[in-house]
Design a protein around this nucleic acid. Structure first.
Length: 565
RNA sequence: GUCUUGGUAGCUCAGUUGGAUAGAGCGUUAGCCUCCGAAGCUAAAGGGCAUGAGUUCAAGUCUCAUUCAAGACACCA
């Protein structure tokens, strides 16, 4: 990484001066008009050494001149008040970076130490249709999964269905009440039964109790209820699978709460051995408060008064199952930020059982709100189903240009995906955001189609022209060219940051910036009419590489490329 | 009530862990197709980052208070 290399040179200079900094950091310049990379450490040194930052800066610049790599790396090193050291790179070093990137399938990015990671996202409940609230977990999770895989980790994705909780008891009750047989039941039945019974349960304690008993008996493997359960699960998961396929979201495991049940006895035994289970109001709980706590954290509810288990229990038991089957170093959960307290409690409960392994990580995402700032709802009061979202986006895209009607169905679906995903992924994962269908249907500006369009128009140049260059020469030909090349060498740092922070938005925004640079270059320079063969070949080399980058990074954002648009 | 987030241009959002002149898109205004794909490009107007205090050489970024908004707070997930 270029930053690390500059830091190494700087370190040598500082060592000679006997200057020491705990955090020696060179970063991309925020004043591109002044330099390419900057070093702000003079201020920190000034404090330690009780000298002025400018004096220190001058010393550093003098010392840098004596480092022989300086000539290779820096076209200019400048000290600017009040104490910034500004580096402008030589064309040679920029091009060397790009040559190295071009030679490697993964752009010469340094890979971290490999871990085995289980990533748990999606998390739909069976018997409820997928609505817009399920979009983020799927899209964000898939992207994080792909980034981790790209960085060489062994990643196992689990959809982790909510398939053994109270909602199943409610649906079974509803089916029986309405005399809907197992042979005849349809997906539509499930989708109407659940909301009805669920809302009736909120009013009617007795009914709720009945459903809770069914749930408990199901968990105890009541034969009849098991049959219902199997049927509900089959119908529902097929539909969930269909939608995830449309989104190009894929899981290695289709497990759920139900898979954790065989591990509950073992879990109970472990908890009992450590004396972590406590009786409280007829239920069994695990207290998770710690000494240094300033706030009260409710205990993890392990087993209800009626004997049924809850999601805290299955979440713990699932860890046992995963440890046994996959030996993960780390488990990553991706869920709505409203569940953060649940995760805190159950992480603590796990810590009390086994303080070290695997590492548990909760990644929250914000709620999807409507234009009124409240959770997204249709007029009927429900969250809109994902199917209707896809349809709406597709219609909007078709209406945006009459030529679009001639597009292949497959390309249309790719574009619908690009629109939705890029609109979602460019937002910071942790914040709530406003879902505006107008924005999600837009095809101009900072959108998925912009990225696809950039790729395709460059690709159409590359199709017409050939080049035989193995390496870029030492030239950079103009401003748009230089800015593009500098943006390209930022890839490694950006991707690393995106992965470390688990923020696909970092990557999405970088990709957009890269495309802006490519478009500026494209408008200014007309490659096909170029007489200068050397220049032409260098530029074709450059564009081939940048298009490869777009393609790879789009894959990490789970966006595919259409043949044409 | 306690706790957790968040408040950045008219709207929707970035802002790499404290640095030099706060960035985009949409919308508005003015330009650019006899030239590789105008779903594009160029330029202009438009915030001083909810408010107030503090820490620091340096604060949108850290601390505290106030305010507004959303959310969570044991037998749903």
């Amino acid at each position: 990484m270029i930053e690390k290399e500059i830091e190494a040179i700087l370190k040598k200079a500082l060592d000679k001066l006997k200057y020491h900094l705990d955090k020696l950091e060179v970063v991309v310049s925020n004043r591109k008009d002044l330099c390419d990379y900057q070093f702000d450490g003079c201020f920190a040194l000034a404090k330690i050494l009780h000298k002025s930052p400018l004096e220190i800066g001058e010393n550093i610049i003098e010392a840098l001149k004596e480092e022989k790599e300086s000539l290779d790396y820096f076209q200019e090193v400048q000290l600017l008040a009040p104490g910034f050291i500004n580096f402008t790179l030589t064309n040679a070093i920029i091009n060397e970076k790009l040559n190295n990137m071009a030679k490697d399938e993964k752009f010469n990015i340094e890979m971290p130490e490999q871990e085995t990671i289980v990533i748990d996202y999606g998390g739909p409940n069976i018997a409820k249709p997928l609505h817009v609230g399920h979009l983020r977990s799927a899209i964000v999770g898939e992207s994080i999964k792909r980034m981790l895989k790209y960085m060489g980790h062994h990643v196992i994705a689990d959809v982790h269905l909510g398939d053994y909780g109270l909602q199943i008891g409610e649906v079974i009750f509803g089916m029986k009440e309405k005399n809907i047989s197992l042979e005849e039941v349809t997906l539509e039945d499930l989708e109407t039964i659940y909301p009805e019974i669920s809302s009736r349960c909120k009013e009617d304690e007795e009914l709720k109790e009945k459903c809770a008993t069914i749930t408990k008996e199901l968990q105890e493997e009541n034969k009849e209820y098991q049959k219902y359960y199997q049927k509900i699960k089959e119908l529902s998961s097929n539909d969930i699978l269909r939608i995830y396929n449309y989104l190009d979201v894929h899981f290695d495991l289709w497990e759920g709460e139900s898979n954790a049940y065989p591990y509950i006895p073992k879990l109970t035994k472990k908890l009992e051995e450590k004396q972590l289970l406590t009786e409280s109001n007829g239920a069994r709980v695990v207290y998770v408060n710690e000494e240094q706590d300033t706030k009260e954290l409710p205990p993890l509810l392990y087993q209800k008064q009626n004997g049924a288990y809850l999601y805290g229990t299955t979440d713990l038991a699932t860890i046992l199952e995963r440890v046994e089957n996959y030996h993960p170093d780390r488990i990553i959960y991706i869920a709505d930020s409203r569940q953060s307290m649940h995760f805190e409690t159950f992480f603590r409960a796990w810590k009390k059982l086994d303080s070290q392994n695997p590492k548990l990580e909760f990644l929250s995402f914000g709620t999807v709100n409507g234009t009124d700032g409240k959770p997204f709802k249709t007029r009927a009061g429900n969250s809109p189903k994902l199917d209707s979202l896809f349809k709406e986006v597709k219609t909007a895209f078709l209406n945006s240009n009459t030529k679009n009607e001639e597009m292949k169905e497959n390309d249309l679906d790719i574009i619908v995906n690009a629109i939705i995903k890029f609109a979602d992924l460019q937002n910071n994962r942790e914040k709530d955001y406003i879902f505006d269908i107008a924005k999600f249907s837009s095809v101009v500006g900072k959108t998925g189609p912009y990225i696809l369009y950039t790729y395709l128009r460059i690709a159409s140049i590359l199709k017409k022209e050939k080049f035989y260059l193995e390496n870029l020469n030492k030239e950079i030909y103009d401003n748009t060219d230089r800015e593009l090349r500098l943006k390209m060498i930022e890839l490694e740092n950006t991707l690393k940051y995106a992965v470390d922070t688990r923020l696909p938005s970092v990557l999405a925004n970088y990709l957009y910036d890269l495309c802006v640079n490519m478009n500026a270059f494209y408008e200014k320079n007309h490659i096909n009419t170029l007489e200068n063969k050397e220049k032409k070949e260098n530029w074709l080399f450059l564009l081939t590489l940048s298009n490869r980058m777009i393609k790879s990074m789009l894959e990490l954002l789970e966006i595919n490329l259409p043949e044409r648009m």
